[in-house]
Design a protein around this nucleic acid. Structure first.
Length: 457
DNA sequence: CCTGGAGTTGTCCTA
DNA sequence: TTAGGACAACTCCAG
């Protein structure tokens, strides 16, 4: 019986996996292709992708199955595998960024031209971007109406784990060692590794634990930087180790149960992820340009000393520096801290939001193109449904509110986190403590607001 | 077509 | 000490 090729990209799970489920009954050949979309990844996302592949291989059942690794143009790799194995069908779960859509649609057409079945599925999102539209047929530019439009929709129940079988002889494969996806991380890899939430089992356990123990307090506690009060699920969601549908149904069960308002807020956060994809699909320029073109005239600062000090937590503003260290050591950052450091970079330092976007793309293990671009433009003020520009975060006020006892700052500036940071950064760098801020907080605020005012006038 | 309510996450000053 | 209003209009979106 001819095998099916299952092309894996961001869906490293067995449960609720439509493409994998479509492989039932025939021998399946899972393949990961190192094409341009992989080589273009930042250091942390590339490293994390490799770990996702490795972990997925361990969960494959029955044992004996494996994931085939190949390098090259995706269509050429798939065609080579078809020739080698006699496969007659290729399946995958869709991605929604513009480059992937362009690549995948061409591949689908090319395969079908050659008489190969090609089928793709939605697994990465709750709501395919084109299925949500305003009353007049446009796309949503404001979150709340988007939320109201989708919150009561039926979401299909998650699929169960399919029964798989593999060909008697698998095609040749490269190895993860060959790929060396962790190489750009250098000595940081071993440190970030300790903080990963890795694999399908761990993600499922985390979701269960979150719904059992944390979600009821989510609304009240999620902003406190030193608490483990958020879901922490962005990372496995990015790599598809858990599906948004699994999260959605768990959230709904909690909301009608003991989770209440906290669970509702969790669902809204999940829908922010959907909204980001909705925007990226209908307005892909959000990835690269100021979504509001008037911001093209804002005097954005380029990549200089200010940006470099920001990246390595040397701004002299403790809460900002602590957060930047958290990012470097763990590959993640608390949601509120992300807003705060983004506000500081784009407003107090007036550095172009794209410089921050790129650093996050380099360092976040939960990096997602849609959420990252939307988040940066939201804070910078240049995006859809953005915060008003006068809404400038004051790092001192934020620290007083959300890190009152300085537990977070102390950990990253003077405690175990500081030691991890010292061990993670390039050897060529020396840690500089007690730096003076580049600009006083009030002065930075006034300067940014003045530049904004000039823009409007 | 018109109308009107509303808009994730803030800060600062004044009374 | 604390609560309320200003900050800026503007766009979005449903009815």
């Amino acid at each position: 019986m001819a095998p099916i090729i299952y092309w894996m990209r961001r869906d490293f799970r067995l449960a609720d996996n439509p493409a994998l489920t479509a492989c039932q009954g025939r021998p399946v050949i899972p393949v990961v292709i190192r094409d341009g979309s992989v080589t273009a990844l930042g250091a942390a996302p590339a490293f994390r992708l490799g770990r996702a592949v490795e972990e997925f291989c361990k969960t494959l059942r029955p044992p004996g199955g494996s994931v085939i690794l190949r390098t090259g143009d995706a269509l050429e790799v798939l065609e080579a595998l078809i020739a080698e194995t006699g496969a007659t069908k290729v399946v995958w779960n869709r991605l929604y960024d513009p480059e992937a859509r362009d690549r995948d649609s061409k591949i689908k057409a090319a395969l079908r031209d050659r008489g190969i079945e090609a089928e793709s599925f939605n697994a990465h999102l709750l709501f395919a971007p084109w299925t949500v539209e305003t009353g007049t047929g446009g796309y949503y530019r404001v979150y709340t109406p988007y939320w109201k439009a989708v919150r009561d929709r039926d979401v299909p129940a998650p699929l169960t784990v399919p029964a798989l079988r593999f060909p008697d002889r698998m095609p040749d494969s490269e190895t993860l060692q060959d790929w060396a996806l962790d190489a750009p991380m250098r000595r940081g890899a071993a440190i970030v590794e300790k903080h990963l939430l890795l694999g399908e089992h761990a993600a499922k356990d985390r979701l269960t634990e979150f719904m059992d123990r944390r979600v009821a307090r989510y609304r009240d506690d999620r902003d406190f930087l030193a608490l483990d009060a958020t879901s922490g699920l962005s990372e496995p969601l990015t790599y598809g180790e858990i599906s948004p549908r699994q999260c959605w149904h768990a959230g709904w069960r909690a909301m009608v149960g003991a989770g209440g308002k906290g669970a509702e807020h969790f669902l809204k956060e999940l829908v922010w992820r959907e909204f980001a994809y909705h925007l990226m699909f209908h307005s892909p320029e959000i990835l690269t340009g100021n979504w509001r073109p008037e911001w093209n005239d804002f005097p954005w600062q380029g990549d200089g000393e200010a940006a470099e000090r920001w990246r390595f937590g040397e701004t002299g503003v403790e809460i900002v520096d602590a957060a930047m260290r958290e990012l470097y050591v763990t590959g993640r950052m608390h949601n509120r801290a992300r807003m705060l450091v983004a506000s500081y970079l784009t407003k107090h330092l007036m550095v172009d939001w794209r410089i921050g976007r790129d650093w996050f793309a380099e360092t976040l293990v939960d990096w997602d193109p849609a959420s990252n671009a939307m988040g940066w433009q939201w804070v910078a003020g240049s995006g859809p449904d953005a915060a008003p520009f006068f809404r400038v975060f004051n790092p001192d006020t934020q620290a007083e509110k959300f890190d009152r006892k300085a537990v977070y700052r102390t950990h990253w500036l003077h405690g175990a986190g500081a030691r991890d940071f010292a061990a993670a950064i390039p050897r060529s760098r020396t840690i500089r403590n007690r730096l003076s801020p580049m600009i006083a907080l009030s002065e930075g605020r006034e300067r940014a607001l003045a530049a904004y005012k000039a823009l409007k006038g």
